[in-house]
Design a protein around this nucleic acid. Structure first.
Lengths: 338, 338
DNA sequence: ATGAAAGCGCTAACAC
DNA sequence: GTGTTAGCGCTTTCAT
């Protein structure tokens, strides 16, 4: 590596003190414009580039934040990460990305590295925050904001979410209003306090409000993935009384479910209506396109980053637990029953 | 921030010199096992955590690498980023992720930040490497490896790719062997030296080898996105002589094209066969599932990271331009003509 | 085997 | 307004 230029070199070259050079680098007001020009020239001349590491060591702040996601490969996350990154750029932050596969051990390791690397804050996505993780957060003593992640109640971390129960309610209520009364659900994980439990709560509530008896046997537990949507739908199709509609707790599962239906020679929505959840691209691309609840994923990321920056700079925040609006979007997979 | 513990504190607590403490931290052999234990205890006692920033400043290496992608939101990239991250973890590296939207200006900015933050290497994905970018690379003077990116010939950066021309050839040859002779193509960008040009070259070559006349009017330029697949297929469907098969240069476009076909009331593959490219999940999920050329995206990321680490540590590398194998996978979207 | 000391490149306090 | 200096937390000679 060809010896790189330091501020000291710049100062010497410009014939000024190190302090002055630093001041112009940081645009400090109290510096004579002539000397400033001198330094600026020297910088250009020498092709100076500041060393962020050295700066960070001194000021104890790195302008980088850690982003922890279950798996960037899952359809839900890329959009939120993009929202984060775009927002981060506005504030001159960079992001270190870590995948955890929802594995607490990996979460811990990732947090350890991020801690050693002195990130200024953490954006965390999981199902919930485990006790270990919460401990690590407080121990790190930097701002954290959760995205689409249930806070273990006991804690009280800032967060960006949607109202999952209400969203599921809206989805099922929509089906009911379309005239459906025999509605199955393919749910998320029964132990997932973010996307699992609340969505079945919303399903049940909507049913009740529409005077439809809730039958737990009509709820099939999935894991958000394609195959579990496919397999569960196969089971549903073996029922004596096939439902006229099924509410699926993730778009990817909804696609799997739809495939099962189509492969059986049934039609969507003529024979069965399908309602998804998430607002993932693939659901729009599917034929027939799948009606769904869209989560504002990009905004979730962007808003989370925005909040985090405020927290880092100790600005006043009015609301540290923001609930963003979901949206029901009608496409081709649900039909009105006459 | 509660004053954090430094190595100096540890040394003092253990009653040893700072140097010794550093030595045990780095597992240096020449340290008496008793003193070592002393220091280790002190570390545990004080809950010491090394400061990677300080360390980096001293050793001039950060154990983090920069990853530059066009858009993490595009179906192609999450898998490669995941491959990168998993591989990076093996070597105790972290990744800083940057999106550029294929915009040279953004690429430059990203590289600037990464340079100031002293990343140890760069993994770069774009269409091609612009002159500015190449300059910046050499100026940064750290290892770079390109992934699925055409090197402007003039340069000679290490790279991980597939043989795009051969892959396209295989796809089209497959169609020919199925008996198709009227085959359109929806291509990538005509100015994209990575996924644009080579794939139409492969298409033409396969046609020739199968004694089919090449007609440039049968090549429709797309931009890899859904809508351009959809729109181009609409045009194709207005042809006097509709092709029996179309080769589409990206799965996402292939899905758009398929939608257009299905919406027109035609069937896949009975009326038209569709061949995609990329091996993206959505193509598998589509109904009918789309036959395609799969690019080993995860491996591309993992291998690239592996190569980068070797380059960083100045190990011997046998081949700095690795071409990974693509794979043709048959699904439901192509039929044999009798 | 271990301690002392220099220094990585920068910022900020302090003098003038 | 500007130069000098200390020091962020660490690694690494250089002595001993």
């Amino acid at each position: 590596m060809s010896k790189s230029i330091s501020l000291k070199d710049v100062a010497k070259y410009a014939g000024v003190g190190l302090g002055t050079a630093s001041r112009v680098l940081n645009n400090h007001p109290s510096v004579n414009s002539d000397t400033k020009q001198l330094v600026l020239n020297a910088m250009k001349e020498l092709n100076y580039e500041p060393n962020a590491i050295a700066r960070s060591l001194k000021i104890k702040s790195t302008s980088t934040i850690g982003v922890i996601v279950p798996d960037i490969t899952s359809a839900f996350f890329p959009e939120v990460v993009r929202g984060i990154e775009d927002s981060a750029n506005v504030y001159q932050y960079n992001i270190i990305l870590c995948n955890t596969d929802l594995n607490h051990e990996k979460e811990k390791e990732a947090l350890g590295m991020l801690s050693e690397k002195k990130v200024d804050g953490i954006l965390f996505i999981s199902n919930t925050v485990s006790e270990d993780t919460a401990d690590k957060f407080t121990q790190m003593d930097i701002p954290v904001v959760l995205i689409a992640t249930a806070d273990g109640d006991k804690n009280n971390f800032p967060s960006i979410t949607i109202d999952n129960q209400k969203a599921a309610y809206d989805a099922v209520d929509y089906l009911c209003k379309l005239g459906h009364r025999n509605i199955c659900m393919i749910s998320g994980k029964a132990d997932d306090p973010n996307a699992g439990i609340p969505r079945v709560l919303g399903y049940k509530e909507a049913l009740k409000d529409n005077n439809i008896a809730v039958d737990n046997n009509m709820i099939y537990e999935g894991d958000y993935n394609y195959i579990s949507g496919y397999v569960n739908m196969l089971k549903i199709l073996e029922l004596d009384r096939i439902p006229t509609a099924v509410f699926v707790a993730s778009d990817i599962m909804a696609i799997g479910a739809s495939k099962a239906i189509l492969e059986k020679g049934l039609r969507i929505p003529e024979d069965i209506s399908i309602m998804g959840f998430d607002g993932v691209e693939a659901a729009e691309f599917f034929y027939p396109s799948i009606s769904t609840i869209v989560q504002p994923r990009y905004a979730m990321g962007a808003v989370a980053m925005h909040l985090l920056v405020k927290l880092i700079s100790k600005q006043q925040v009015d609301e540290k637990n923001v609930v963003l609006e979901h949206k029901l979007i009608e496409r081709q997979s649900c039909k009105r029953l006459k």
